[in-house]
């Protein structure tokens, strides 16, 4: 019997050496779900004058008594840009409420004063504050056009002699980026084409655009604005490649890839597409490639932007800004 008791004791000893999760409790704290909401540490901004261009960031901080859904919204008082940071937590800190100068709703932020709001919907808490952006963040990529310095040498345009034509650079409304944009508008009742603008690579000092060879890694980005009431706009982007490398584009022999944009909603929109996803279009319909059929961004010869509308549909207008090629992903505004 003694032997049995020893065996039994040994078993208990083995068992007592087992490990067990020593967390105080399982799951989220009930306090976080059902406890009262109290602001333990007031809302604050670590850097109220932030220079994103110099690599600075700013963090919003607050501490609550429980986990809640919260939203920090920053609105550019001049540009109208909006950045929204949301989360579900009891604390706002560097890990979940840091602003690097990006935008949620374009336009992009400018050097401007911004209004800041903290909202906790479950408690109707709203805190207002301000901060000053003294430098906008640098965006990496090849900028085709931002229209800040007017119509550049080498760019060419064509405008039909229709009614109310407005192919010009202006700043009537807040631009998507900077302060200026390109306004394309008019009514042409005999042709789909209202006007166009060409951006040849030669305008940038080389026969081809300085892009890498990987079409899966190159993204074309542009910002378009549709005024209220316009429904007939068609913006066609054409990308001509110098397939044979002779620094000349041969119509009907070399590739021309396209991106057609229409049926936009009112306001600014960012359009981004991977270069390798561009299509060959003939009269708006997909077609076989005209040239070698290879996507060769490093052989991009010319970009054309054609503004079109059904000739029976009357006046049309679209604003355009910030044509930029990015690498590795679409433009993060």
């Amino acid at each position: 019997m003694k032997k049995n008791i020893v065996l039994f004791g040994l078993l208990l000893l083995v068992l007592s050496s087992c490990e067990r999760d020593d967390a105080a409790f399982e799951g989220p704290a009930l306090d976080d779900i059902y406890g009262p909401f109290v602001v333990l540490q007031d809302f604050d901004i670590t850097d109220r004058s932030v220079d994103f261009e110099a690599g600075e960031t700013t963090t919003f901080t607050a501490l609550f008594s429980k986990q809640v859904d919260w939203e920090v919204q920053i609105k550019g008082l001049e540009s109208g840009a909006i950045k929204s940071i949301t989360g579900f937590s009891a604390e706002l800190s560097t890990s979940n409420a840091r602003w690097t100068g990006t935008t949620t709703e374009i336009p992009l932020f400018k050097e401007e004063m911004c209004a800041v709001e903290l909202r906790v919907p479950s408690d109707t808490l709203v805190v207002y504050d301000t901060l000053n952006v003294t430098g906008v963040r640098n965006i990496t990529g090849f900028v085709v056009a931002d229209f800040e310095n007017g119509f550049q040498p080498g760019w060419t345009g064509f405008v039909q002699s229709g009614a109310d034509m407005s192919f010009n650079i202006t700043d009537d409304i807040p631009a998507a980026q900077g302060s200026k944009y390109y306004d394309m508008g008019g009514a042409v009742d005999w042709d789909w084409l209202i006007g166009l603008i060409d951006f040849p690579a030669t305008a940038y000092g080389a026969p081809h655009f300085p892009l890498s060879t990987d079409p899966a890694n190159i993204y074309f980005n542009v910002m378009l604005y549709l005024p209220q009431g316009i429904t007939n706009e068609v913006v066609l982007f054409q990308f001509r490649e110098d397939d044979n490398g002779d620094n000349i584009y041969s119509e009907n022999n070399e590739d021309i890839f396209s991106l057609e944009v229409k049926n936009l909603e009112a306001g600014w929109h960012q359009i981004s597409l991977r270069y390798g996803d561009l299509a060959t279009l003939v009269n708006g319909a997909p077609a076989s490639p005209i040239g070698n059929g290879l996507y060769e961004p490093h052989k991009l010869f010319k970009i054309s932007v054609l503004f079109l509308a059904n000739p029976n549909s009357g006046y049309s207008q679209t604003l355009m800004d910030y044509l930029i090629f990015t690498t590795g992903g679409p433009l993060v505004p």
């Binding site: 067990r20 967390a23 105080a24 409790f25 399982e26 799951g27 989220p28 704290a29 009930l30 306090d31």
Partner: peptide
């Protein structure tokens, strides 16, 4: 219980 559920 051995371990609490959402509370100690």
């Amino acid at each position: 219980e051995i371990q609490g559920q959402g509370t100690e």
